[in-house]
Design a protein around this nucleic acid. Structure first.
Length: 330
DNA sequence: ACAATTTGACCGTCT
DNA sequence: AAGACGGTCAAATTG
């Protein structure tokens, strides 16, 4: 992108997202480390700001929700000069994307810039219009490529993240393993989980090691939780304060060759030792996921029930409480 | 005794 | 139509 970007005239918001009336980076009540990109949450963006410079590549948009008709909760920004669309995607796991709702029918998501064309380049928008507000000198970097894949029909939308081992714990929900399969093309098995909090909850999760990089786990979320998160924040904080992270015991990451070479009996039930053993635990919300995590969106047929859920954890509520005093109610 | 995990069987979808 | 593949079930097993 070059000089043509200097006079961007406006933004086209698409996907039936209602007009956002402010751009806000809420304080979500989370502690951040000095190098944590999520420090940007502590910054407040107000309509009279003249620049987003220095905000890193992550910020939040606060907009009323009409987003169930939109597959990916995305906000589109149209560069009218180059006729190029940029997309702001939530980088939070699907349960946060779909369930950060509040009684006032507003939602706050953390967004990361992405584009379908040149994901590695820097984008310099000289002006960002959000609703009736205009933000000149809008600048951000773009590090997170996004790809779309399609799997079987009749499945809900699923989001797949590439996470490091330590980041597997950034999940406030509790899960019960219900299956494991070897997937063609990968030496590592895929582990299947259902939400264990509610019997009727349809939320599911898959975990497998990336065949390309053993340090990366592919974690997929699908379905929606129809209940509150299981643990209170104090418990979550205590869990997260442990310096050593171990893989949840139910996550089997034994590569296929290891299993084949193992001298296991041919009986139906094979007793075997696991690589890593630690109890599966509920963990802190996923706001610590940084820009290094790439998100893969699996576009599948939406069940389309269109229902909105009020299902938030305490941290998010705190963040929104502070937000309430800042944003204009509609 | 109970909850969670394991794992072969089963079934639906895709090619 | 049939086989491959992936997702889920559920009995057996484990802790």
């Amino acid at each position: 992108m070059g000089d043509d970007d200097r006079d961007i005239g406006g933004i086209v918001r698409s996907c039936n997202i209602n007009r956002p009336n402010k751009v806000v980076a809420p304080n979500l009540g989370l502690k951040t480390s000095p190098n944590d990109v999520w420090n940007s949450f502590d910054k407040l963006l107000t309509p009279d700001m003249t620049s987003f410079n220095g905000l890193s590549e992550i910020f939040s948009l606060d907009f009323p929700i009409a987003r169930r008709e939109n597959s990916y909760d995305q906000v589109n920004i149209m560069n009218q000069n180059s006729n190029k669309q940029l997309y702001l995607h939530s980088i939070q796991p699907v349960q946060f994307i779909q369930q950060i709702t509040v009684p006032q029918s507003r939602t706050t998501v953390a967004c990361v810039p992405s584009t379908t064309t040149t994901p590695q380049e820097w984008i310099n928008l000289q002006q960002l219009n959000v609703g009736t507000n205009i933000y000149p000198n809008f600048t951000f970097s773009m590090k997170t490529p996004l790809t779309q894949t399609r799997t079987r029909k009749n499945q809900s939308i699923s989001l797949t993240y590439e996470l490091l081992q330590e980041e597997l714990r950034n999940d406030i929900w509790t899960w019960r393993k219900y299956g494991q399969k070897h997937i063609k093309g990968s030496p590592f098995p895929r582990n299947y989980y259902k939400c264990s909090t509610s019997k009727h909850c349809e939320a599911k999760k898959q975990i497998e090691k990336s065949p390309k990089n053993e340090n990366i786990f592919l974690v997929s979320y699908s379905g929606e939780h129809n209940h509150d998160p299981p643990m209170n924040r104090r418990y979550l904080a205590s869990c997260n304060s442990n310096s050593k992270f171990k893989l949840p015991k139910s996550i089997n990451i034994l590569p296929k060759v290891s299993i084949l070479n193992a001298s296991s009996p041919s009986s139906k039930r094979v007793k075997h030792s696991r690589v890593v053993v630690s109890p599966i635990i509920a963990t802190k919300p996923s706001f610590e996921i940084g820009s290094k995590n790439k998100m893969v969106v699996a576009a599948v047929q939406n069940k389309g029930d269109g229902k909105e859920k009020v299902d938030m954890n305490e941290d998010i509520f705190m963040g929104f409480d502070q937000l309430q005093g800042i944003t204009t109610s509609t």
